[in-house]
Simulated assay, not measured.
Amino acid sequence: MSYTHPETGKEGEAMSHETRKEVIHTFQVNFFAMSRLNAFPWDSLDGEIMTTTTSDIITEILQKTCLHPICLKNPPSLKYRRRFLTELIKRHEMLAAEPLDALYEALGEVMCAQEEDMCYKTYLLPTGDAVSLAENVALISQGTTGLVTWEAALYLTEWALENTHIFKNKTVLELGSGVGLTGIVVCLSSSLTKYIFSDCHQTVLQRLKDNITNYLTNSDSSRASVCVEELDWENVSDEQLQRIQANTIIAADVVYDPDVIACLVRLLSRLLNCKVQEEHPDVYIASTVRNPQTYDCFKKELEMAGLRHVVMKDSVAQVFPYNRATTIEMIQIYV
């Protein structure tokens, strides 16, 4: 069966069962990650709506998003759910069908509720697991950017899922862990010995502890030992670094402020020269290159500190919904 889109005038055909299932899943993944609304497959939904006389696909999308148990327990922001439901209602009204009470009831609930500073983003893994993290609604709040998940952290997490062998039987230190996505996923997917989350902002550290408590417990003997360290790059002691004894160091989006580049490079130099079992640690840094001058400054500081780096160009499969057009570069640093 074919249809003509009411706004674009383009013709199309009804989707297959598998395509329909994929479209609904894409709606779910984007909804829980709070993707921009223009990232959703609205045209595909319109096509299905125009070739049927029922609201079935709208109902399924609603059940997989706003009415899903994950949303009921760990909801995206109110503003986001309002916008999503408003758009879904707009698409449903293209149907010459009876109003869908569940849609309006869901919108009514979020219209009456009061917005909070905190919301949840849920990241669906290839294993079927879901990681829900408490994040702040604002990108910058309480003087820090560490209360949200940034794109380079999503990329680093995808890379980690493809390279679990790198973490096998290792002690891993993550610099600037933020709300904890990468570390939680690494611990869930890799057979490592210990994972050390770290940050220096007190509010971030508390949020980080709250998030990892939901997924990682040392009482589970099948998982690695997990801890959270307050790590001040400027003032970290030799004793603290010796106690950490990390074989592998990872970080995402830590190269964004020219004022912290020098102390970051000094810390990396000290970490790389702390041999563990007679070997230098492996260091991997993923960065969103927002300011090329700042990023070039970081690389020059590495060179002046006697540290070499190589850009890792292997392709990484996309797992999470975010803009891959953004320039994200991952490097390995070594002495």
Rank of each mutant, 00 (worst) to 15 (best):
S269M: 06
A102L: 12
F31C: 05
V228Q: 01
L85P: 14
I196L: 03
W150D: 05
L154H: 04
D210T: 14
Y195A: 02
I166G: 10
L133C: 09
S315C: 14
P41T: 05
V185P: 00
C200H: 09
F298A: 03
S237P: 09
K299C: 03
R207S: 11
G183D: 00
F40V: 02
W159E: 04
V311D: 04
A286W: 02
E22N: 13
E301Y: 00
V204C: 13
A113D: 11
K73T: 14
K90G: 06
S132I: 02
T294F: 01
G176N: 11
D43G: 08
E116G: 14
D257T: 03
Q332P: 02
I196P: 05
N30I: 02
Y284C: 13
L307P: 06
D282V: 14
N211I: 08
T182Y: 01
F167S: 10
L181N: 03
L188Y: 00
L103W: 04
I57Q: 04
V148K: 12
K73E: 13
Q318E: 11
R81T: 13
M34P: 00
R82W: 05
K209A: 14
E13H: 14
L107V: 12
E87K: 15
K168F: 04
L133K: 11
I184D: 04
A113V: 01
Y155I: 09
E229D: 04
E234D: 13
S219A: 10
Y80G: 08
S190H: 02
D259L: 13
T248G: 02
L156P: 01
A286D: 01
S237N: 05
S221H: 08
G183S: 00
K79Y: 07
Y120A: 12
E109M: 07
V131P: 00
V265L: 07
T193G: 05
E116L: 12
I184E: 01
G108V: 02
N169I: 08
S219M: 10
K313D: 15
T213H: 06
K73W: 08
L88S: 01
L88G: 01
E98Q: 14
K275Y: 12
N235T: 09
C119Q: 13
A138H: 07
D101Y: 11
D56T: 15
L175A: 10
K170P: 01
R36L: 11
Y155W: 08
E329M: 15
L139C: 07
E115H: 10
D238L: 15
S237D: 06
